[in-house]
Design a binder for these strands. Structure first.
Lengths: 227, 227
DNA sequence: ACTTGAATTATGTCTAGACATATTAGCCAA
DNA sequence: TTGGCTAATATGTCTAGACATAATTCAAGT
């Protein structure tokens, strides 16, 4: 019997073969269900999957059309740093370098949508892999949205605690290549100006902005994704 | 009536509230369906979605359990470079710098799973945004798996042609920060050693490895993702 | 010409029931 | 104890039919 994956494969084949050209409408679910001899729900499952992959675009009443330019999507799994390190077969450790309250600098407040100079908690942590510096984490935390039991971040990594104790709703991540600042060079043990892969993340919870974190990775770091 | 999104929200709430602790089994689909007064298919839809998000892990016969460490997933949309540039409100253009056949270097052949020194097509293209260098694209193409109508890559960007003419099955992307080589510095118009964000992609089609491409981005480039 | 509203239609979701499939637990034999 | 077979079970998928929802079309009224 034909399964939804077979339907998906056949639809994809026809799109690749230009049977159904980019931008064109494809037959409705009912028509496809009849053609393939399956229930409409099965066709729906297949088409929904293709829509998620960006191959087709679907709108009620308007029907389903082939995407003009197939946008490929890749998935990045953002691991807790400890597991990332252990997954590479190295011993993990971290050190809390800074933990203090400070007014949010303008760019930080702006990115999180908080008032300027709002009181925030600033944490600086260096994560170690096999005893060597792996990532320098600079984190701004919005104390207003945290659960009422503040842990000691010198024994529990903020990175890890947040994942399990704050329900994150949305966020974004950006990668850039930057020259190591004096501070970064010192902590990571490299020459100033060395190219570093920097990840900047903001996260928002149900009750507002939670944290902005900048991760400066040691040279040679690769961020890998599959699709 | 309760929809699958409501079910998903309630299950997520219970997980966050530690009603169902990390690593623990949650009730089966049938039990939840009865509790919420919906069909099992509706519960299945909700749980499948949570599994895709990495919140729970499901196995036949073994049941559904709360993921030990919630892995957050972000989605990267990989645009065709032309659209990426136009999307930033800049004029797009490109120049083909190199197009020749060459034996695959060892690391290239290894990454693609091809025999050493296999004959490949090597393309070097610089993409321009607003008249200024934006990306240097260095691409190794496996000529064995291409459709029989080779286009002229000096008028059609390889980047764009491949997306629409080869059915890609899988691939991976890796981002690194690297110091600009002499060649990269020259083409991009920056000083050698400048930190560059480099993306390296391999793609595989139904008939084998298709291409390996290295994109060296001009300084300041950001790769942005949401989750 | 312009706006409003209703009919139409394709996708979105749901139900109840069924069979498929993977995996585990338990049993039995070597 | 160990290996392998079997039965039990939770998830995976499918069907046929129904109603919900959004978006378009088109007609009517201003």
């Amino acid at each position: 019997m034909l399964g939804w994956e077979a339907i998906r494969a056949e639809v994809l084949r026809r799109i690749r073969a230009r049977d159904w050209p980019p931008g064109g409408l494809i037959p409705g679910e009912e028509a496809l269900a009849e053609e393939f001899g399956v229930a409409r729900a099965t066709v729906n499952r297949a088409l929904r999957d293709l829509a998620e992959a960006g191959v087709i675009e679907r709108k009620k009443r308007a029907g389903t059309r082939v995407a003009e330019l197939p946008v490929r999507r890749a998935r990045l799994e953002i691991p807790v740093i400890r597991l990332d390190v252990l997954g590479r077969g190295l011993a993990y450790d971290f050190q809390l370098l800074v933990d203090r309250m400070a007014p949010a600098p303008v760019p930080v407040a702006a990115r999180l949508g908080l008032p300027e100079a709002a009181p925030m908690r600033y944490l600086e942590t260096v994560h170690l892999a096999g005893g060597r510096p792996y990532v320098l984490e600079a984190r701004w935390l919005n104390p207003g949205v945290l659960p009422p039991d503040p842990p000691d971040f010198s024994t529990v990594s903020a990175n890890e605690w947040l994942v399990t104790h704050v329900s994150l709703v949305s966020g974004d991540i950006a990668f850039t290549a930057e020259a190591a600042s004096l501070r970064e060079a010192e902590v990571l043990g490299v020459a100033p100006g060395t190219p570093l892969l920097v990840a900047e993340r903001t996260t928002h919870g149900t009750e507002g902005p939670v944290t902005l974190v900048r991760l400066a990775h040691a040279p040679g770091h690769r961020v890998q994704m599959v699709f």
